[in-house]
Simulated assay, not measured.
Amino acid sequence: MAYGPFQGAVEVHSGGLPPWLAPVARAAETVEPTQLSRFLPPEDGAGRQSAVLVLFGEGRRGPELLLMERAGSLRSHAGQPSFPGGALDPADGDPHGEGPVRAALREAWEETGLDPHGVQIFGVLPKLYIPVSGFVVAPVLGWWREPSPVGVMDPAETARVFTVPVADLTDPEKRATAVHPAGHSGPAFLVESALVWGFTAGVIDRLLHYAGWERPWDRSRQVPLDWRA
């Protein structure tokens, strides 16, 4: 399935990025999978290939990230903020080639109405694994060179689409450790009336760290999650 009007070749390059994005582009070129997560794709190739779009833009308060909040009625990850993204379709192409980039752009268009023509893909992070769902996820990095209107395309799947200033993501007062009743924990962000945790928060946390944007924060500050999370 082609994503909207965009059917041209997908090019990944870091030329012409704003100077503030240069540290992220450099990190994407050098970061190792184990530096991003302890959950890596199964060696036997198992797992559903998928991709998310980590889209950086320029907002009223400076650099920002595009996120969406899943509908509260969904069976899995209800109400959880996330990057736009999803599983690869056969038409997206080679999962080991440009497939993840095409899937990330297609899913973002389907979920938020984003015009992929205005996005410059400047990197793809190593693939990570989400054990609870069995997804093998490629985080695709984009620069929102020409912003387009975005919003909820399907209320049954998405509650809202919003942007978060990087200044808020790096604010120590908006950071915490999310603790699940099952015992595992991870970074969390309390931003835009939302609690960002799980896979999405983990990717943001590592990007902030390796881009040199991270500020010291109180890792003992905990936010409990419930069993439905």
Rank of each mutant, 00 (worst) to 15 (best):
S76F: 04
R75E: 13
L88T: 03
D89V: 02
G72S: 08
G72R: 13
V101D: 04
A91E: 15
P90F: 13
A71P: 02
L88P: 06
A71I: 04
L88F: 03
H96K: 11
D94G: 09
L66R: 08
G99A: 09
E98A: 11
A71E: 09
G97Q: 10
A78W: 01
L66P: 06
E69Q: 15
F83E: 14
G93T: 04
H77K: 14
L67A: 11
G97M: 10
H77M: 13
L88C: 01
V101T: 11
V101Q: 15
L74F: 02
G93C: 05
E69A: 13
M68P: 00
P100S: 05
G79Y: 11
V101K: 12
G79M: 10
S76G: 01
A91K: 04
G86H: 03
A87Y: 01
H96A: 13
P84R: 09
L65M: 15
P95M: 08
D89L: 15
P84L: 13
S82M: 15
G93H: 06
Q80R: 14
R70M: 14
P100W: 05
S82V: 06
P90M: 12
D89Y: 15
G72I: 00
L65R: 14
R70V: 06
A87D: 13
Q80Y: 00
F83V: 12
A87H: 04
R75L: 13
E98V: 10
D92E: 05
L66Y: 02
S73W: 02
L65T: 06
S76Y: 11
G72W: 06
H77F: 15
P81M: 00
R70N: 15
D94M: 04
S73A: 09
P100C: 01
M68A: 07
F83M: 09
R75G: 05
M68C: 01
H77T: 04
E69K: 15
H96N: 08
L88H: 07
A71D: 14
G97D: 11
R70C: 02
M68K: 14
E69F: 02
L88G: 03
R75H: 10
H96R: 14
G99K: 11
L67R: 14
L65W: 12
L67H: 14
S73K: 09
E98W: 04
D94F: 05
G97I: 08
F83A: 02
L65A: 09
V101M: 11
A87M: 13
S76C: 00
